[in-house]
């Protein structure tokens, strides 16, 4: 698993796609080989881990990489004990400087903590206590989850979401390397369903390639990604517009029977509603309010059918200008 994704990672900081500012600053830093603690943040799949790994590679080269870099993944156990022992042990052994085979090999080590925001608070606190190694953090959107004392010790780098063109060019590059056939429709579908998350795009591509072979159509990608085909969403929306409760009920039952994930349905319905030209802002607001509530309920584990039904009924009332009920 994940083999292809690793293969596709650029080995040089300058090759990291689309993060121009970050790359510029980092390249300067690397030339002096004097890097501060760094904190990378931004939405998933924008190249944070890739950049961190690239820095490590550029500094040490393949030979010293193993001994100088400690990589702790989100999937590793990162309670306070791990941070205390592993990082300490790793950082305890001092290393000398002196470049080797064209790599600068500065006299410090690098620790990469992936998805630092999912670490426990205690463990984060421990992090800056054992701060004598060099620390590279790459983590997700939840910036506030990093405790302040840790954040203030780091140089922060924000990673932007990737634009669609960058995604496409990157995907095409991967397809060429892996020998996959992708038509233009499939390509645009892929970049839209992955919502600027390159990792997700690659995962879908990989899944589709495994299941359907080397020539992949847009339909294959949709089916692998769990995205609901647009016509299903549209027909539910149309049923809501019709104002007939029973036909909406039938559509909802159908969505459930087809096994589409309702959380996905909600987000696609949301897009449809927001983009629709023929409904007023107030109607949109009414619908979106309930969409949000339903999404939260789903997270709490509420029943999918009932939540979607509630959304559909509410949408219908909003679209057909039925009176807003006292219970809302």
């Amino acid at each position: 698993m994940g083999g292809e994704i690793v293969l596709c990672r650029p080995k040089q900081v300058k090759d990291v796609a689309h993060q121009d500012e970050v790359v510029r600053v980092l390249t300067n830093t690397l030339e002096t080989t004097n890097c501060p603690h760094m904190l990378f943040y931004g939405p998933p799949g924008t190249g944070k881990t890739t950049t961190a790994l690239a820095i490590a590679h550029q500094l040490y080269g393949p030979e010293l990489y193993k001994s100088r870099v400690l990589e702790l993944n989100a999937s590793d156990d990162r309670g306070i004990n791990v941070v205390r022992t592993k990082i300490k042990d790793f950082a305890a052994v001092a290393v000398g400087s002196g470049s080797r085979q064209g790599y600068p090999c500065p006299p410090y080590k690098i620790i990469i903590l992936d998805e630092a925001d999912s670490m426990t608070e205690d463990a984060q606190a421990q992090c800056f206590a054992t701060h004598n190694g060099n620390l590279l953090q790459s983590y997700k959107i939840l910036f506030h989850l990093i405790i302040e004392p840790l954040a203030s010790r780091c140089a922060k780098f924000r990673f932007k979401p990737l634009s669609e063109e960058i995604m496409s060019s990157r995907i095409l590059h991967i397809c060429k390397e892996e020998g996959l056939n992708l038509d233009s429709e499939a390509l645009s579908t892929l970049s839209s369903i992955s919502q600027g998350d390159l990792r997700r795009a690659i995962t879908y591509l990989q899944g589709a390639a495994r299941l359907f072979g080397s020539s992949i159509s847009a339909k294959d990608l949709v089916s692998v990604s769990g995205v609901i085909p647009q016509d299903v969403v549209q027909s539910l929306f149309a049923a809501c517009k019709s104002g007939d409760f029973d036909s909406a009920n039938k559509e909802v039952s159908n969505v459930i029977a087809e096994g589409y994930p309702v959380s996905q349905m909600l987000s696609q319905l949301f897009e449809v509603v927001v983009e629709a030209d023929d409904i007023s802002d107030e109607q949109k607001a009414r619908i979106c309010k309930r969409l949000g509530e339903a999404d939260k309920c789903l997270v709490d584990g509420a029943d999918e059918y009932l939540q979607l039904m509630n959304v559909a009924s509410n949408t219908m009332r909003a679209l057909c200008n039925m009176p807003q009920d006292s219970y809302e």
């Binding site: 009932l306 509630n310 009924s313 039925m322």
Partner: peptide, 28 residues
């Protein structure tokens, strides 16, 4: 809910449906 919906007039369906979803969530 589905048994009750069968017997109801359309105007009540929306509200009943809302409460079913509401209480199912509370149940969780």
């Amino acid at each position: 809910l589905s048994e009750l919906l069968k017997k109801l007039d359309a105007e009540l369906k929306h509200e009943v449906c809302h409460w079913a979803a509401y209480y199912e969530h509370r149940m969780r």
